[in-house]
Nucleic acid binder design. Structure first.
Length: 272
DNA sequence: ACTCGTGTTAGCTG
DNA sequence: TCAGCTAACACGAG
């Protein structure tokens, strides 16, 4: 679920976990905490604090300090396909809603405790948890950011031209490649290409510089709007990713197919 | 019962 | 070596 806008939302919530002394870490889920052994993350963090929460693309990480106030390891957090950040306050009281996922379908959305895959407990009785039904999220020490391209919301015009405007794969696949630029997921890619009236199948190397500049402008606009409104599902075309639905702009049928291994929707008239 | 999926990545191929 | 593609991952939802 989480793409760049949801992760930015989650990062802001994660800031509520800063500057609280860590008393315990449950890192016993060795799949979510791979490649660490159980206890390894706990040993590195207990006694210290998280002091800053950063994000690049869909990856978050916290700076930490040790009990002595020296710089500690970075704590990487990735929400995967459906993870969310959950923060509790002193005494364990809930602090706001889960951050980073879909809007609630119903008021009584299930939140089983066993779906808290990693828990960082603080001396005030509160905690930070990675809530993730599917366990495709990750928590790890010293996450490697080298393989990530520039953040999709920050990438410069020249960088975008050079990184996106090459190769023979479909433009959609290029936008989804986190090493090219980071943060674009399946829905944000569809939204951006629809807004820009670009065929998702078109090879990325065939775009002119003005076309790339326009694509970047639309991507940044769609990304900012999604952050502001609470997620990619608030896009203009995303609600129209259904069978027998017309393009909300021109009325032509929306078409469905697979591009770059992912389910893709596009306007049969404007994005052909 | 069975298929799908808003993400990542190891491994294969040309 | 690299760009591009596929399967696998885990498990709930429809």
């Amino acid at each position: 679920m989480p793409e760049l806008p949801e992760v930015e939302n989650a990062r802001q919530v994660l800031e509520k976990a800063l500057d609280r002394t860590i008393t315990d870490v449950d890192d016993s889920d060795s799949y979510v905490c791979r490649p660490h052994r159980p206890g390894e993350i706990a040993k590195a963090l207990v006694g210290g604090k998280l002091v800053a929460a950063h994000r690049r693309g869909k990856t978050m990480w916290c700076e930490t300090v040790t009990a002595d106030g020296d710089p500690g390891p970075h704590l990487g957090v990735h929400l995967g396909m459906g993870g969310r950040v959950r923060i509790t306050g002193p005494g364990g009281a809930r602090e706001g809603e889960l951050a980073g996922g879909l809007p609630k379908k119903s008021a009584e959305e299930k939140q089983k405790d066993e779906w808290d895959r990693v828990t960082v407990s603080f001396d005030d009785g509160g905690s930070f948890r990675l809530f993730d039904k599917r366990r495709l999220g990750r928590v790890r020490l010293e996450p490697d950011l080298d393989a990530l391209g520039p953040d999709a919301a920050e990438i410069s015009r020249d960088d975008f031209r050079a990184r996106v405007g090459r190769g023979t794969a479909p433009i959609k696949a290029r936008l989804l490649d986190q090493s090219v630029l980071s943060g674009v997921g399946n829905l944000l890619a569809d939204e951006t290409l629809w807004q820009a009236k670009v065929d998702p199948h078109r090879p990325s190397g065939t775009f002119s510089e003005p076309e790339l500049d326009e694509l970047r402008r639309v991507l940044r606009k769609a990304t900012r709007a999604a952050i502001k409104h609470g997620g990619v599902h608030t896009g203009e075309v995303i609600p129209h990713r259904q069978r027998d639905v017309a393009c909300p702009r021109c009325g032509a049928p929306m078409e469905r197919g697979t591009v770059g291994t992912r389910t893709t929707w596009w306007c049969s008239a404007e994005q052909a």
